[in-house]
């Protein structure tokens, strides 16, 4: 791949997915795209990029998929799911006691481990959710990852990363050498392809948004745009959970970090904060 090919690839990835590939990452592009190039009968990544430049080329989606990081595992970082169980859901259940409905959006669901971890956390809350309808929408740019997520089939290696053994035998069935998540948990999650760069205002309002480990791949202006548009999809007493290496600070004033709970954010215009269990959780109005 020539430097010109690499520049073309970087521009294309940024426009289509928001993925920012720095100039020193040519090796990464080569290693991730070579298998794809070979699969389509090209001798090199350079030949693949030449094909991409043709107006009739239909390989762009596959190139974006190959370049996107789908790293994920069950209960990743643990703390977000403790926040969900101990702080966010109790507050939302109190605040939504009349509508009895809570909507959760998982913005970068990848192969499904995050939304299913949310579903398991909710199931483990048991009777506290009685009478409530909780919808989980799980979206991702990569269609192939979502197909895997819908099937809910995971390797032995995948179910041993972050998933407590009690939850494995409670919610999974062994299917050959794989483990499949229970149909009732699969039914709790709706999977849908979505590019965060594009308008998502038709999705409706969400009480809780998980947007973890996706902003890190975007440039500054894309991060701001995504966060500001997520804020518009949330009620004033909603919650946002970001990844451990992500923050809104210095990017947007649409959200305010929770004073005590790292990784948890509230819309800044929260006029009537949801009633949270512990006084120290009360958010700035």
């Amino acid at each position: 791949m020539t430097p010109e090919d690499f520049d073309y690839l970087r521009k294309m990835l940024r426009e289509r997915s928001g993925l920012v590939l720095s100039v020193d990452k040519q090796y990464l592009a080569e290693s991730r795209l070579l298998p794809l190039a070979r699969r389509h009968g090209f001798a090199s990544v350079g030949e693949l990029v030449a094909q991409l430049k043709m107006p009739s080329c239909t390989l762009a989606t596959e190139v974006v998929d190959a370049m996107t990081t789908n790293e994920t595992f069950f209960f990743r970082d643990k703390i977000p799911f403790e926040l969900l169980r101990d702080s966010v859901m109790p507050a939302l259940l109190a605040a939504r006691s009349h509508t009895k409905r809570v909507r959760i959006w998982c913005t970068a669901a990848s192969t499904g481990q995050e939304p299913y971890s949310i579903a398991m956390t909710l199931r483990e809350m048991g009777a506290r959710l009685a009478g409530f309808q909780v919808d989980i929408l799980a979206t991702d740019l990569v269609v192939g990852a979502l197909d895997r997520a819908r099937n809910g089939l995971y390797t032995q290696f995948e179910v041993q990363r972050g998933l407590p053994i009690q939850l494995l035998i409670k919610y999974f069935t062994k299917v050959g050498e794989m483990w499949q998540i229970a149909p009732e948990l699969r039914a709790m999650v709706q999977f849908r392809p979505l590019n965060l760069l594009y308008d998502f205002s038709t999705l409706g309002l969400f009480d809780l948004v998980f947007c973890r480990n996706v902003l890190i791949y975007f440039d500054q202006s894309t991060k701001v745009s995504v966060l500001d548009r997520i804020a518009r999809q949330m009620p004033d007493d909603g919650f946002l959970i970001l990844g451990a290496a992500e923050t809104v600070v210095g990017l947007t004033e649409a959200f305010t970090p929770h004073p005590d709970k790292r990784g948890l954010y509230r819309p800044s215009n929260a006029g009537a904060p949801a009633r949270l269990g512990a006084p120290k959780l009360a958010v700035r109005a």
Partner: peptide
């Protein structure tokens, strides 16, 4: 806890 062989450092650490 329970580890199903084969295992690696990542799995042992997680468990």
């Amino acid at each position: 806890e329970y580890i199903m062989k084969p295992f690696d450092k990542e799995i042992v650490e997680a468990k």
